[in-house]
C-alpha cells in the first residue's frame, strides 16, 4: 500500500519530502524505518537527511503511539498553574520521558503548547477526554483508570493460552 503513497509524489523532488512524510504517518500512524528508507530513495535524498527532518519536527513520530495518548498542556496559563509538576508526575508514574511510549505500548506521553482550555488549567488530555484543574495527587488515579483496561485484556489472553 505504501507504493501508492509514494506514487502521489514526484520523484527526486526534495520539496515533496514533508508532505510525503505526513502522508506516510497518516497511513501507518508513525514513520516506520523501512518506509522512511523508501521515502528517502523516492525523493533522492540520503536517509540521514530524511531522518534529520523527521526528528526535527514534533509532528513526526518514529515509534508507534501507545494505546492511550496523554497530552500535557505546557501553554502559558497551564505553566502558571504548575503544569511542569503535572508533567513530572506523569513522567514518574509512567517511567518515561515526554515524547516516549511505555514499553508495554499502553501509554504515550506528549507535550503540547496549548490545548485551548486555559480556563481549567492545568489541563491534560487522555485520548479524547480532558482533565482540568489538576493537582499532582490526581495523576495516579488517571493513569490507573487507563491502565486497568489493558490489564484485563492481557490477562484474558493469558488465560486463553493456558
Amino acid at each position: 500500500m505504501n507504493t501508492n503513497v509514494l506514487e502521489k509524489f514526484p520523484q527526486n523532488d526534495r520539496s515533496a519530502l514533508i508532505p510525503l512524510l505526513q502522508e506516510i504517518q497518516e497511513n501507518y500512524g508513525y514513520l516506520p524505518e523501512e518506509v522512511l528508507q523508501q521515502a528517502a530513495d523516492h525523493v533522492g535524498m540520503p536517509l540521514c537527511t530524511v531522518y534529520g527532518v523527521a526528528t526535527f519536527y514534533n509532528q513526526f513520530r518514529l515509534i508507534p503511539l501507545g494505546e492511550n495518548v496523554i497530552r500535557v498542556c505546557r501553554g502559558t496559563a497551564c505553566h502558571v498553574k504548575s503544569s511542569a509538576n503535572i508533567l513530572f508526575a506523569l513522567e514518574t508514574a509512567l517511567n518515561i520521558k515526554a515524547g516516549q511510549t511505555t514499553r508495554d505500548k499502553l501509554f504515550s506521553l506528549e507535550v503540547v503548547s496549548c490545548i485551548g482550555a486555559c480556563s481549567i488549567a492545568p489541563v491534560i488530555s487522555v485520548n479524547d477526554e480532558y482533565f482540568g484543574r489538576l493537582a499532582v495527587k490526581d495523576i495516579d488515579k488517571i493513569v490507573k483508570k487507563y491502565s486497568a483496561r489493558k490489564v484485563s485484556v492481557s490477562t484474558a489472553n493469558e488465560n486463553q493460552e493456558s
Binding site: L36, M45, P46, L47, C48, T49, V50, Y51, G52, T55, F56
Partner: peptide
C-alpha cells in the same frame, strides 16, 4: 550522506540515521 543533524535545540546531534 552518512551523517546529518538530528533532533533539534539542545538535543541536536550530528549522527547517523
Amino acid at each position: 550522506g552518512a551523517i546529518d543533524f538530528v533532533n533539534r535545540g539542545f538535543s541536536s546531534i550530528v549522527t547517523t540515521p
